[in-house]
């Protein structure tokens, strides 16, 4: 008899969890009555695997500002009811990376940026809109802020405001401060994130001997 059932569309996978016996943990999307819900799931039967999955769900709530679906310790959603699927995948990956020995705490909206040699802050402007401010002045610093804004827009599937290139917002017009804090550190190096994704995608593909790096 089959042990696997239909649990929705898998949208992200951690093949080998660094914090629990290298089990695979996946994120599945399901359609709930109040918008999409995301199930964190492992097929591992090891003792403690269920608790590990529950920790990842809690971490997604704490780090990414999601909320637990009532009565389910492994299912989360965004309070606004919108999918934000790309951002959710990022929250999941970050939650799996989080060392369980360290307390769960959301990341601040201010970060030190080596390239501009100063602090950068993301300021919430209401209605789901944000702007980046920083200590450094001049064209170079402005360009850097713009680049990081573009990184946030890409990672969070946000939109630039039409009237200015400094303001961007979530399409749901709701604030997601914890999510922005989580994405900010990755927005400093979006290429690094893309490289990581490419490497993860290439891993596990069997190549013909003639196509293998020797």
């Amino acid at each position: 008899m089959s042990l696997t059932t239909d649990i929705g569309r898998r949208i992200e996978l951690v093949s080998m969890d660094a914090h629990f016996h290298e089990i695979s943990i996946a994120l599945y999307r399901q359609e709930g009555t109040n918008g999409p819900e995301y199930l964190i799931h492992t097929y591992s039967q090891l003792d403690g695997a269920g608790k590990r999955v529950e920790f990842v769900a809690r971490a997604m709530v704490a780090l990414g500002g999601m909320e637990a679906v009532a009565g389910d310790t492994r299912r989360v959603r965004f309070p606004c009811g919108n999918p934000h699927q790309f951002a959710c995948r990022r929250i999941f990956l970050e939650a799996c990376k989080w060392d369980p020995a360290v307390g769960l705490e959301s990341r601040p909206l201010t970060i030190f940026d080596k390239k501009s040699d100063g602090d950068l802050s993301v300021v919430s402007l209401g209605d789901g809109a944000y702007r980046i401010t920083g200590d450094a002045e001049g064209d170079k610093a402005a360009k850097r802020r713009s680049a990081i804004g573009a990184g946030l827009v890409k990672l969070g599937e946000m939109e630039w405001a039409e009237e200015t290139e400094e303001r961007f917002s979530f399409p749901c017009r709701q604030a997601h401060d914890k999510l922005v804090g989580l994405l900010l550190i990755r927005a400093l190096n979006v290429r690094g994130v893309e490289r990581e994704q490419q490497m993860a995608a290439a891993r596990g593909q069997l190549l013909a001997p003639s196509a293998q790096k020797q």
């Binding site: 042990l3 996978l13 089990i23 695979s24 492992t42 097929y43 039967q45």
Partner: peptide
């Protein structure tokens, strides 16, 4: 050829 996946490996504890 193979249809093994990492999730199936977990399911039957055969990584």
């Amino acid at each position: 050829t193979s249809v093994a996946t990492v999730e199936l490996m977990d399911l039957v504890d055969a990584p």
